[in-house]
Structure formats: C-alpha cells, structure tokens
Amino acid sequence: MFHSMTPSHHDILALHHVTKIYRNGTRPLTVLHDLSLTIESGETCAIVGPSGSGKTTLLGLCAGLDRPTSGEVHLAGHPLHQLSEDELADVRCRSVGFVFQSFQLIPTLTALENVSIPLELRGSAQARAAAVELLQRVGLEDRLQHYPTQLSGGEQQRVALARAFVHRPRILFADEPTGNLDEDTSAPIVQLLFSLNHDAGTTLVLVTHDMELARQTQRIIRLKGGSMIEDSATNRSRYKKTATS
C-alpha cells in the first residue's frame, strides 16, 4: 500500500477498517466497506468516483459529521468514533474547515460576519480582525458589509474560502468547490484555494467529479461501490508513487 494503515504522528487523518451501513427500512445498505487510509499533515488529496460511490459518506466520516458503523476514525489525534456530538463539534470548530459546492453562507449575516463565525463560535476576541484580513486576502476588502444575496457566485465562494481558513484549521474538506461556478470563475477560485492552502500549510481533502481539479492535488483516491479501488499519487505528489488496492 501507498500509506501505512497505522496512524503515525505525521498523520492528520486515519481511517481503520471503516464500514458504514445505512438501514433503509429493514434492508441494510452498505455504503462504505472496510475502508482504511491515512492522510499526512499538509498533504492535498482528492476523492473521486461516480455518483453513489460513497464519496460524500467518506467525507462526512472524515470530518466527524457522521459515525462509522464499525472501524475507527482518527482526526488530528482525536478518536472521532468515541466522541460525543458536542465533542465532535468542538473538534470541527478547532481543526476543520469546510468549503461547499453551494457556498452555504448564512443569508442574514454580512460577508464579514459569515467569515467570523468559526472564531466567534470559539469565543475568540480576534474574530473580526482575522476575518477582515482573510477577506482582504481573497480580494473582497470592499465587500465586508455586503449580504450574500448582494454578492456574485464567485464572490460568495471567496467568502466561503475565507471562512474556511479564518480559524487556521489543520484540515480542510472541500466538497465540489467549483461545482456551482462557470469555467471563468472557477479558475481563480481553484487558484485561490490552493494558494491559501499552501500558505497555511493546511491538509486538503477534496471531493470532486472534476479530474482536472483532482490532478492538482498530490493524491487521488478513487471510490466505487463503497470500496477504494485506487489510491494514486499525482504529478504533484511528494512521493511520486502509485498504488492500487
């Protein structure tokens, strides 16, 4: 295998024999089957696969949004499978950033307020200053007091990017970050995403259909029918090594 299955101190994320079964009435539906993987700190990787392959379920489990039916998930040193809902929330609040396909901004809050949320939830006194800095970084210094409805799609995703990085997360999960954007708008967003990620040294886990985008990460994990069918390094990989399961 390409990576060791035993969590090491370099690993930010480790999944160990993770299975997820949903019950649809009395019929069990196995969405992920005995999946193990580790992701090193600072690594960028993309999870790809057809619809229904289990990408979103995997992202949910990795980010502590859901619990595995069996197996273990360790994120930033925390055994997620053993934590309560509020403990999971705390891990997300401190260590995880998110970028969504449809931006997911709160319509009642201004751009500045939206970006402040992760720090606000922690009770940080520097929330506003950090949010202003990030918004400047994404080129929205003149849009601080705008509400989401007053921003274009590209601008909304920039706000979402700023929000994702504002609390300096150790790992960032991005779910089809350019799925709702046209080609012209996508390119600068992708550039911004990788640039922010590079500067912050954050681990990036990307779920996407877009192979071009996936190839910009260091590693591609391909899922099919709930199993990992490929885990390969890209040209950008530090390891330049390919493995298939």
Partner: peptide
C-alpha cells in the same frame, strides 16, 4: 438549514 451549517462549522447544540 442554518443550524445544520453552524453545527457543521463546529457550533455545539447549546449554542
């Protein structure tokens, strides 16, 4: 929708 998003971003139930 908003509460679920806030939960995702790390808000506790109490918040």
């Amino acid at each position: 929708k908003e509460s679920v998003l806030l939960r995702t971003l790390g808000a506790s139930r109490r918040q």
